[in-house]
Amino acid sequence: MSGEIFSALRQALHEEEAVVSATVVSGELLGAKFLVFEDGRTVGSLGSSELDAAVRADAETFLKSGEAAIRSYHLSDGRNVEVFLEAHLPPRHLVVIGAVHIAIPLVAMAKELGYRTTVIDAREFFATRERFPHADQLIVAWPDEALAQIKITPQTDIVILAHDEKFEDPALHVALRSRAGYIGAIGSRKTSEQRLERLRRAGFSEQELSRIHAPIGIDIGAKTPAEIAVSILAEIIAVRRGRIGQPLRPAKTSPAAVSGDGG
């Protein structure tokens, strides 16, 4: 690895900027390196502009999934080159708006999943260290002011539990204009529909609004705050991995289908 590439990689790791490193692992250019940053910036080269362009296009998938794997590239000159692509992502960041009851197990479980966590509430009696011993950051401020202090990247997942339009609308305005990886908001179907209507009136397009997961979570019949936290985190993981969140057992072998009585 050249000094120039290693310093760029080190800097990205320190500044928590997402980057994909690509390394040729076959043939005569063995060891050639190329870095692709979130903003599309690149450093180095794999020795062919055609290969660089192909890897740069694939890097986007790796930035999203955080994975590492070898990809084969067939070049127009007949060569076949194997390249190892590896995403170096900052820790994921869960931002919770509304230091409500559900937020407590949500933050504790997110910590277990390796998240950095921030809890935001304008009410100082809610966003306390006593209630949130696991939170990395507590911010007592209005959601839009608080979000302005945070760097929101595709590694940031925003969960809005405020359940009150005067808190959640300003938060959603900022979230929808950001590159957050996940945006979810608690509330019933009816509340969610009313929220969408307010945001439409505020000028957001249907495409923008489709980023909001509401009602939040995966349907596991969650009732208690901890169960709802599981449901929300399961949805966040599924979204990150591009899944919809179903049982792994094939549908045709489900008890209802086999016994025919549906329980």
């Binding site: 690895m1 390394t23 692992v25 590492a68 794997a69 070898i70 190892f84 590896e86």
Partner: peptide, 17 residues
Amino acid sequence: ALATVVRAIGSSPRPVG
């Protein structure tokens, strides 16, 4: 020198990367 697992076939104790 830096060593990196770039491919794992079958079960391996450490992940690729």
